[in-house]
């Protein structure tokens, strides 16, 4: 009897070619990015410990391995972001093409969450925010006066930079809006990530369904607390 035709490419090449492969890449890069976002928020909680804690943390991080750690990390994260976005665009285009004609009378969804519905939109908002955030707190291009400040020990005064910046309501609102978008994105994507990897299965299914929203809420609460605390005067210079 004839063997079935080998139509599919095998191994990694086949994986990369397929929709499921693209999804797996999104999930894996997403995993890295979620991990980064969570630790970023947790570390920033040092804002509440005062200038010394935050500034020394920032200083040490920047000079770890002669600066190599930070730059290596940045390069890795950038690569993840690039792959994540490229796959997202590839899949979004494909998905749009898969239904060239929409339902004339609209489609009534039954279980889709808002978060799931607006993944592309929240993704774009997050991307724009990341660029702004890098220009703001990493490059010092936005609000350079807040950026170029040194503390008593001659280190970059990160604490002061953050607090002064958030005192400006417009800046704070931008951060709040972006973080709400991020929370929506995470709430669908973290659970979806487990699903794509085939892990949201069996008895883990109901648990993992809550992990996305839980992480989203955790990150949102932490990140929103910074501008709000500053605006409310709880953290001040």
């Amino acid at each position: 009897m004839s063997a079935p035709k080998k139509t599919a490419k095998r191994g990694l090449a086949g994986l990369m070619d397929s929709t499921i492969g693209a999804k797996i890449l999104m999930a894996l890069t997403g995993f890295v990015l979620v991990g980064f976002v969570v630790q970023h928020m947790v570390m920033n909680l040092q804002l509440y410990a005062g200038p010394e804690a935050l500034n020394s943390y920032a200083h040490n991080l920047k000079h770890m391995m002669g600066g190599g750690f930070v730059w290596g990390g940045r390069a890795f994260l950038l690569a993840c972001i690039a792959i994540h976005i490229q796959m997202a665009m590839k899949l979004t285009n494909r998905n749009r093409d898969a239904r060239p004609q929409r339902y004339a009378a609209g489609q009534r969804t039954q279980v889709t969450s808002y978060a799931a519905q607006f993944m592309a939109l929240t993704g774009v908002v997050i991307l724009l925010f990341v660029i702004y955030h890098l220009l703001h707190f990493t490059g010092g291009v936005v609000q350079p006066d807040n950026f170029h400040v040194l503390d008593a020990e001659g280190r970059h005064d990160v604490w002061r930079m953050v607090v002064t910046s958030f005192k400006d309501p417009a800046t704070s609102i931008a951060y709040i809006v972006a973080n709400i978008a991020l929370a929506f994105h995470l709430s669908h994507s973290v659970t979806s990530m487990f699903a794509t990897l085939g892990l949201q299965s069996g008895r883990y299914r109901p648990i993992l369904a809550k992990v996305g929203p839980a992480i989203a809420a955790f990150v949102l609460l932490g990140n929103l607390s910074f501008p709000i605390s500053v605006l409310a005067g709880l953290v001040h210079i």
Binding site: K5, A8, G14, T19, I20, D97, A98, H188
Partner: peptide, 21 residues
């Protein structure tokens, strides 16, 4: 699974975004 997914992709179906509809 490799062959079926390959055919599924070639036929022009979209990808899964885990909505559950």
């Amino acid at each position: 699974v490799l062959n079926m997914v390959h055919t599924m992709d070639t036929e022009g179906f979209g990808a899964c975004t885990n909505h559950g509809e």
